[in-house]
Nucleic acid binder design. Structure first.
Lengths: 227, 227
DNA sequence: TCCTTTTGTTTCACACTTGAAACATAAATT
DNA sequence: AATTTATGTTTCAAGTGTGAAACAAAAGGA
């Protein structure tokens, strides 16, 4: 295994490869070549081989990859074979929706607790997940061994919440608040900024090149996969 | 106004600048220099000026930018001065949570309709938003002048849903399904892929450099803003 | 009028990502 | 044993984004 730094874009692609492999398994395939995978899912075969080669030699020359074997390897690389416990801060609409978002379970994440400052909510349950007082955050994190935090509070509280999260020793954070956060030390934040995505769509609809009155009907132009 | 192509990264930054300006306004400031803005929000002053210069001359030399004036300009550039109507496909947990997500309203987007295939849900309301039969998608889109679609269905249905969206003439789509979609023609898709974000966090927690037994306590290292 | 401030603009170096190309190597098949 | 297939690996060119530097131009203040 190489020790060079792995780009986040590489690990993002590993996620995608894993999905593709799952789909192939569902279709009953046993092996796949980098070329076959690339053609089927509009990827780049050289990139696939390069990405995988960072972590080891998983393929068989002349054959390709044994799908089940490769799935296990990628699962291990991404740490998806280990359970993680999630705490969601903010028991509003978004927080409660996330609390039983199936995607967490699919990636081996268990939502262990919700947190809120609203006395009326504390003690209630969302599905099987209890809402705790944000004041008891650190204790609850320790009790449930929470190692991933989700920020689902309004922007103005996000930085304060992050400080608490960092103080509790949690090193992985997903932030849904539209607010750039200051991180200290070895903490990883993934921002999911719906506002930026929305405003990007708004710009697309408003921009000069869409204002020329041309109505572009869906045409037979070559389709493309956009990330 | 220049006609060169604007990078999406530039418009993403415009969203961020707008937020910063809103915060400054809330604090009572009237003008700000690119340097002041950069220092306060951990941005790059040269980049701010470059980004803004793509769209016109909004500043006053020797003074900086009049905050209110600049806000109006960016709002117009991003098309946030125009109302948009949103249709959400998939009235599950995520779809219904999005239906009254406040961020839509803040960016001048109105959620006009939810769509689902489940007969039991059709006709129900989520807040003020009615759930319509997905079969009546195109008619409902026309009736409510929906110009933005949100895909909140399981991955296996996402491509089919997208086809319907494209057929109805909608050109702006936000996709929450963890599935790379094939786009035809002049349609803009923003993927919000929580799975990739989650698995990226998982990798961070699992990767070799986090396995050396060192517990890194929050330290006094220079803080940084991570996107 | 002169000086200071700050924008608008260009230029450049650096870093990163991508995708193509080339080729040795290994496994399987004929 | 020879051939075919597909990986593992290196190299390179092209494109893009970033941030620094430099400087003219404009506005305001002394």
């Amino acid at each position: 295994m190489k020790v060079e730094k792995i780009s986040e874009l590489t690990t993002n692609r590993l996620s995608i490869y894993l999905r593709c492999l799952n789909e192939l398994t569902a279709q009953g395939a046993k092996t796949v070549s980098s070329d076959g995978l690339a053609k089927k899912f509009h990827l780049n075969s050289a990139q696939i081989r390069k990405d995988l080669a960072y972590f080891g030699e998983f393929g068989v020359r002349g054959v390709g990859y044994y799908i089940d074997d490769l799935r296990k390897h990628i699962t291990k690389i991404l740490g998806l074979d280990k359970k993680h416990c999630v705490g969601i801060i903010g028991a509003g609409r978004l927080g409660t929706a996330l609390a039983d978002y199936y995607g967490f379970a699919r990636s081996n994440f268990t939502v262990a607790a919700l947190f809120d400052a609203d006395k009326n909510k504390i003690g209630e349950k969302v599905g099987t997940v209890e809402i705790f007082d944000i004041k008891s955050f650190t204790e609850t994190v320790e009790k449930y061994k929470i190692d991933v935090a989700v920020i689902a509070v309004p922007a103005e509280f996000a930085q304060d919440v992050l400080e608490q999260i960092m103080n509790s020793g949690i090193k992985a954070v997903m932030n849904f608040a539209p607010s750039p956060l200051r991180v200290i030390g070895d903490v990883k934040i993934k921002n999911v900024d719906l506002t930026i995505s929305l405003e990007s769509l708004s710009y697309f609809l408003a921009k000069p090149s869409n204002k020329n009155g041309k109505i572009l009907k869906p045409n037979a132009a070559k389709s493309r996969i956009k990330q």
